[in-house]
Amino acid sequence: MTLKKTRSIADVSLGESLPELAIPITVTLINGGAIATRDYFPGHHDKDAAQQLGSPHVFMNILTTTGLVQRYVEDWAGPLARFQDIKIKLGVPNYPGDTMTFKGEVKERDESEKTIEVSFAGKNSMGNHVTGSAVVVLP
């Protein structure tokens, strides 16, 4: 595996866009993500239970969404970018068969602290599944 380079503060400009990332939403991702985050709420792994709750299918849990947000920001910033915070707000659910596409932008840049704030939105066919921001410290 070739290791990705971590961006330095000098590499990043204010207003810069992050490359888009499209994530196919599958039963496997929703299920596996829920279990990997120790979330056994039935709506995340049992279709019948999800339908009892009024959903057409199982839906992604918030802890998986948070993980995917980390991936999106970290894939771009590099392995040694250290997160100070991740703030997310959920919108429409992620159901199997959909695709969530992340877009992001550098909203704040502090040269002396070497921190940047990235704002992002993960959108599926029904609208924004997640919006939010993350602050990372660059080396």
Binding site: Q51, G54, P56, H57, Y95, P96, G97, D98, N124
Partner: peptide
């Protein structure tokens, strides 16, 4: 309290409500 009562799926493959 959910605004709409559960609608069971009938024979459709897609889980995603079409917008």
């Amino acid at each position: 309290k959910p605004a709409v009562r559960p609608k069971p799926e009938t024979g459709t493959d897609s889980a995603i409500p079409k917008i």
